[in-house]
Structure formats: C-alpha cells, structure tokens
Design a protein around this nucleic acid. Structure first.
Lengths: 207, 207
DNA sequence: GTTTGTGAATAGTTTCACAGCA
DNA sequence: TGCTGTGAAACTATTCACAAAC
C-alpha cells in the first residue's frame, strides 16, 4: 500500500538495505529475496518486506526484488539520486580521516570543502582538498553546499553549526559529544563515538 | 520502582545523561534537575525521569539530582565503574584518529593495544602505542582485554571479528560498513558513518 | 512451489498528568 | 512551592500468519 506515514525506524533502515543491495549488485547479482538480503544484513526478512511496503511494490511475488530497480527506488526515497555536496569543518585527526574516507561516495556524497581555524593548516591540502579559513564559511551558500560535517572540539561545535546554518547548510553530521541546537528545517545527526562504546559493557554479562 | 525490565532505548540514552552529568559536574555544579539536564541535552524532562525510574530513586523531590550520586549510579548500571581495556585493529586513517581520540577516557576506557597486518606499520608507534602484528591477536586473552575496535576494510572485518572473539573479546565497536556475525554472548555495535550521512537528505525538505 | 505484501496481534516506547515528598 | 517518580493512556514499531501473485 502507498502513502502511509513512514516510520522513522524504517527511514533509519533504508540505507542498510541500500548498502546490501549495492553489495549484491556489485557482485553481478541481478535479483535477491527478502530472505537473502536479510541474512546478508543480519536483520529479519519480514522487517524488510514491511519496510518496503510503505513505499509501494518493489518486488515480484515468487521471484524477489530486482536489484537495479530496488537501488533506484531507495535512492529516490532517500533523495540520494541527485548527489550531494558536503563541507567538513575541523581538520584534526578525525576530520583528516574523514576527508580520506572513500565510503561517502557509495551514497553519492562528495566532500567539496574543508575548513579550519588554525593558521598553520589554512592554505595546506588534505586528501587533495584545500583547507580554507573557517571565517569564510559563508562562501558555501554560493557553492550550493547543503550538508556539513562537524569535527571540531566540543567547545566550538555550536558556533560552527550556527555558521554553517547561516551559510545555508540544511543537514549536519556532528561528531562532537554534545547536543547542537539548530533552527527548524535543519536536521542534525550526532555520532558520539565514545558514547556508543559506553553502551557495550552493559551488554557484556558474566565476562 | 526497582527491577522492572529495562527498555533498550533507556540503555541507549543513559550514556547521554552521563555525558550531561559529567559536563555539569566538571563545571563545579553539585546538583541538577531533570529540566536543566534535559535542556542541556536536547531531550524531554519526563523522559529522563522515566528512564531513571527503572533503576530506583536517584533524585530528591523538590530538589533534583545530586550529580556525584547520579554519575556513580549510572556508571555502575552501565558497568563503567571498573574501567575497560580495548584493542584497536586496523591502524589506517580512521584507526589512527581513534588512537589519538581523547573522548574514550570520559567513560573510563583505555586503548591498550593496536594491531595491523601491514609490515610497514608493525613495530612503529601511533599516539604512543606500539603497532603489533594482527596475527598475534591471541595475546589479548592474557592481557584481559574484553573490548575490540574494528577499523579495518569491509573485506577483513568478519575475519578480524572472529579472531578477536577467539582471543576472548566480548564487545566490538565496528566501523566497517557491514554486518558482523558473532556468537551468542558477544555484542557488536556498528557505526557506519556514511550510512548515517545517507539519512540526512531524506529529512531535508524543500531545500 | 516460492516469495511478496499486508492486515491484525503483540510488544515496546513515549507522553501525560498528578500524587507524594522535601 | 518545586520537583521527582510513576501508573495509565496514547502512540509507535515489530512480529506473525496467510492470501495473492508469479
């Protein structure tokens, strides 16, 4: 059935399915089933079918899902079909690692700008990208960059986020361990690495 | 009330509260309220109170929460009170960044070993830590290391995970973009950075 | 026979509203 | 008065089971 409200959890899982579909497709496979995809991704088949059911008929009963078709549809739903430019702010250890990280290309992202406030870094290059002065963040508006990756220290992340929003950025991937307040219409996803590690010991019983 | 089943979502949020409590405590503040903590962390006050209610009486009605007490209790619930040793496998860009990352200390973690399979890296140092041969992962057992951080390429992560489990590791923080299968009793938390970024465009309307 | 798509049942989580304590 | 702690209500998500499609 079409046009029901899409659960947030479904949106969270769609990139997982997309990753699996791209993986299989990259190996020359043309179609898959919810069972096969579920096994690959470590999820349940009915979850996949249910999630896809919110968006319409992806598959063919008795046969499965055509991968090209599946990838095309999920890309469209997630608005990944047009490609996206991102700017990274904070070229420290983590920032440098992300600039060199090939994984963003998988989903059609390209980091087109890097900023820092350190005079010794500005003007240099990392992973082929010129490091610009963070004071000149506003140039992102004319460059049509709508995504920002924040890898600055905790103490600077709110200010940097505000500057990015000021420059027209609509989505932020925040690696600093704190909540970032943004206006309506801007979405922040925070990855707090230490915090994720902090959940592990709870699940380790009688170790 | 004590000893109800603790929702997974509550366990996921406890490190957030801990982070907030540590932040306030570090500024010399002695007590807080669910309202103040909620504002700091960008969550709702009743959510905090509800979550804490699963574990017993943390607070004082009319007053709030004593931060020292709160931190001690949450640390204990999350089993962070004893400290944990972690080993990192894969000293590439991301791995190197994580070795230098100070945030793990916040929750009592220490990375005590780093491994790679690259002959040119083995024997060298990163962030003060000797890079060891991944073939000698088994030494982790006698070193009582129970947590592993996996920053190897996708193609190697399942093998590395199995070697870590073989060496007695009970919890894995996986940065490779794929599902890792592990035996019962071992917990994996996967951070797929590109995938998190891939969710952003969906939430950006009329941009 | 196989696999999808989905209502219905079940399970889990969030939110409310307020009693009770300091 | 102010703030916690928590049942109950409202909401959301997962799981099942099977009819329909190939």
């Amino acid at each position: 059935m079409r046009y029901r409200k899409i659960p947030d959890e479904t949106v969270r899982r769609l990139p997982v399915y997309l990753r699996g579909a791209l993986h299989l497709s990259g190996r020359g496979i043309e179609s898959t089933s919810s069972k096969e995809l579920a096994e690959l991704l470590g999820v349940e088949p009915w979850q996949i079918r249910k999630d896809f059911s919110y968006f319409g008929d992806f598959g063919t009963p008795g046969v499965g899902y055509n991968l090209t078709n599946l990838i095309k549809h999920v890309n469209k739903i997630l608005r990944l079909d047009t490609g996206h430019k991102a700017a990274l702010v904070g070229v420290g250890n983590l920032g440098s690692a992300l600039l060199a990280f090939p994984g963003f290309g998988t989903y059609g992202f390209e980091i087109v700008a890097a900023f820092d406030n350190d005079r010794r870094k500005i003007g240099r290059r990392r992973a082929g990208l010129l490091i610009e002065d963070v004071a000149l963040l506003d140039s992102l508006r004319v460059r049509a960059v709508h995504l920002g990756i924040v890898t600055v220290p905790e103490s600077a992340s709110q200010d940097v986020a505000e500057a990015l929003v000021q420059a027209g950025v609509k989505g932020l991937l925040n690696f600093s361990p704190r909540h970032i307040a943004v206006p309506r219409g801007v979405k922040v996803i925070t990855i707090d690495i230490a915090m994720d590690l902090a959940r592990l010991p709870y699940y380790i019983r009688a170790g």
